Amino acid sequence: NNDALSPAIRRLLAEHNLDASAIKGTGVGGRLTREDVEKHLAKA
């Protein structure tokens, strides 16, 4: 659900052409954090 993404996370996802649903969020309520996105990028 993109409504739960902060603007910074949306921008980071867009810059790397990532789909938020492909990344498991570890923030409050399962929200994506910058660390989640960076860890996903490091794996790729």
Results as ranks from 00 to 15, higher is better:
N1K: 07
N1L: 14
N1A: 14
N1P: 13
N1R: 03
N1I: 13
N2M: 12
N2G: 12
N2I: 15
N2S: 13
N2E: 14
N2F: 06
N2T: 14
D3W: 02
D3G: 11
D3I: 11
D3H: 12
D3V: 10
D3T: 12
D3C: 08
A4L: 13
A4Y: 15
A4F: 14
A4M: 13
L5V: 09
L5M: 09
L5R: 03
L5F: 07
L5H: 07
L5Y: 06
S6E: 15
S6V: 05
S6T: 12
S6R: 05
S6M: 06
S6C: 06
S6Q: 06
P7N: 11
P7A: 14
P7I: 11
P7K: 09
P7E: 15
P7S: 10
P7H: 11
P7W: 05
P7D: 15
P7C: 09
P7Y: 06
P7T: 10
A8V: 08
A8Q: 09
A8W: 08
A8K: 06
I9E: 03
I9F: 04
I9Y: 04
I9K: 01
I9W: 06
I9N: 01
I9A: 03
I9S: 01
R10A: 11
R10H: 10
R10G: 07
R10N: 10
R10D: 11
R10P: 02
R10L: 15
R10Q: 14
R10S: 07
R11Y: 13
R11L: 15
R11Q: 15
R11D: 15
L12N: 01
L12S: 03
L12F: 07
L12D: 02
L12T: 03
L12M: 08
L12K: 04
L13I: 07
L13G: 00
L13Y: 02
L13N: 00
L13W: 02
L13S: 00
L13V: 04
A14S: 08
A14L: 12
A14R: 13
A14H: 08
A14P: 00
A14N: 08
A14M: 11
A14G: 05
E15T: 10
E15A: 14
E15K: 15
E15P: 01
E15W: 13
H16I: 04
H16E: 02
H16A: 06
H16G: 04
H16T: 03
H16F: 11
H16D: 00
N17W: 05
N17C: 10
N17T: 04
N17P: 01
L18R: 00
L18F: 04
L18G: 02
L18P: 00
D19W: 06
D19E: 10
D19K: 09
D19S: 12
D19F: 06
D19P: 08
A20Q: 07
A20Y: 06
A20H: 06
A20W: 07
A20N: 03
A20K: 05
S21N: 12
S21F: 08
S21G: 11
S21R: 10
S21I: 07
S21Y: 06
S21L: 07
A22K: 12
A22W: 10
A22N: 11
A22V: 11
A22D: 14
I23D: 00
I23E: 00
I23W: 05
I23P: 01
I23F: 04
I23K: 00
I23N: 00
I23H: 00
I23Y: 01
K24T: 13
K24A: 10
K24S: 08
K24D: 06
K24G: 05
K24E: 10
G25V: 04
G25T: 04
G25N: 02
G25W: 02
G25M: 03
T26Q: 04
T26D: 02
T26Y: 02
G27A: 04
G27D: 03
G27Q: 02
G27N: 02
G27H: 02
G27I: 02
V28S: 08
V28F: 11
V28D: 11
V28M: 12
V28Y: 10
V28E: 14
V28G: 08
V28W: 10
G29H: 07
G29Y: 05
G29E: 07
G29A: 07
G29F: 06
G30R: 03
G30V: 01
G30P: 01
G30E: 04
R31W: 05
R31E: 09
R31N: 08
R31K: 11
L32E: 00
L32R: 02
L32Y: 02
L32G: 00
L32F: 03
L32M: 05
T33L: 07
T33S: 04
T33V: 05
T33W: 01
T33P: 00
T33Y: 01
T33M: 05
R34C: 04
R34I: 15
R34V: 15
R34D: 08
R34K: 13
R34W: 15
R34Y: 15
R34S: 07
E35P: 05
E35D: 10
E35V: 07
E35L: 10
E35G: 09
E35F: 10
D36L: 01
D36W: 01
D36I: 01
D36N: 02
D36T: 00
V37M: 03
V37Y: 03
V37I: 14
V37R: 00
V37T: 01
V37L: 07
V37G: 01
E38A: 08
E38I: 15
E38P: 00
K39C: 12
K39S: 11
K39I: 10
K39T: 10
K39P: 04
L41G: 01
L41N: 01
L41P: 00
L41Q: 02
L41R: 02
L41F: 05
L41V: 10
A42M: 13
A42F: 08
A42R: 11
A42C: 06
A42Q: 13
A42D: 07
A42I: 11
A42L: 13
A42Y: 09
A42V: 08
K43V: 10
K43I: 13
K43R: 11
K43S: 14
K43P: 06
K43A: 14
K43W: 12
K43L: 15
K43E: 13
A44Y: 14
A44Q: 14
A44H: 13
A44C: 06
